[in-house]
Design a protein around this nucleic acid. Structure first.
Lengths: 106, 106
DNA sequence: TTAATTTATGCATCATCGTGCATGAAAGCA
DNA sequence: TGCTTTCATGCACGATGATGCATAAATTAA
């Protein structure tokens, strides 16, 4: 397996491996929002929100646009949500499997 | 969005956000292997390999089996590879988009 | 020009993660 | 019973990551 590919893939997953960033993705699902709208909704410090948005943008998951003093972000890759849904499926199956193991041990 | 769900999803992605662990998944793609086979192939310390395997197992991505002193691991969820392929697609598209932006700036 | 608003960043701090070494635990063999 | 092999874990260390505060940079309004 190509080490460069492993590096890229793992970096993408690492960016998604943070609940605040996933929350940001879901929050932007229905369209663009500026940082000044996102920050109060997230109940996080503005600097925290800004940094997370930049990480998502650098990974190519978000697009952005500057309008006056405001900066708007939106989802660049709708397929990210396929990724999240697939993750849910896998987690669901893993939970079921674990439940079966526990039940089988009784 | 349910915080519990965000937590679970992000934990799954965090586990995948490490190149050594992705390499382990690819290595196990064609069937089970014991730690004693995996360790030399990975060129990593045995303790490192063991810990990564356990993290993948705890997330429900690997199954395991003990045979004598050996421990065998295998892929529990083939859908993980769908996840990896989707990640590749997204990364490819992001790279193309970035290339277009760079070209457009000239 | 001055003041206010919005976003990004420098800095310090704390927590988490990956790693290597040594050791413990379990199983099989002499 | 000892000895060996295989795997997991305790510990310490260095690196990375998230956070909050203060502030810089950019834009707009007064």
């Amino acid at each position: 397996m190509d080490p460069k590919k492993l590096e890229l893939e793992s970096k993408l997953f690492a960016v998604l491996g943070q609940p605040t960033r996933l929350k940001l993705l879901y929050m932007l699902r229905d369209g663009e929002k500026c940082v000044c709208e996102i920050t109060p909704a997230m109940k996080e410090d503005q600097s925290v929100v800004s940094r997370h948005l930049i990480k998502l943008r650098d990974m190519g998951l978000l697009e952005w646009r500057k309008e006056g003093v405001s900066v708007y972000y939106w989802i660049a890759e709708q397929r990210v949500f396929r990724l999240l849904e697939l993750a849910d499926d896998i987690l669901r199956e893993a939970a079921l499997k674990q439940a079966r193991e526990v039940a089988g041990a009784l």
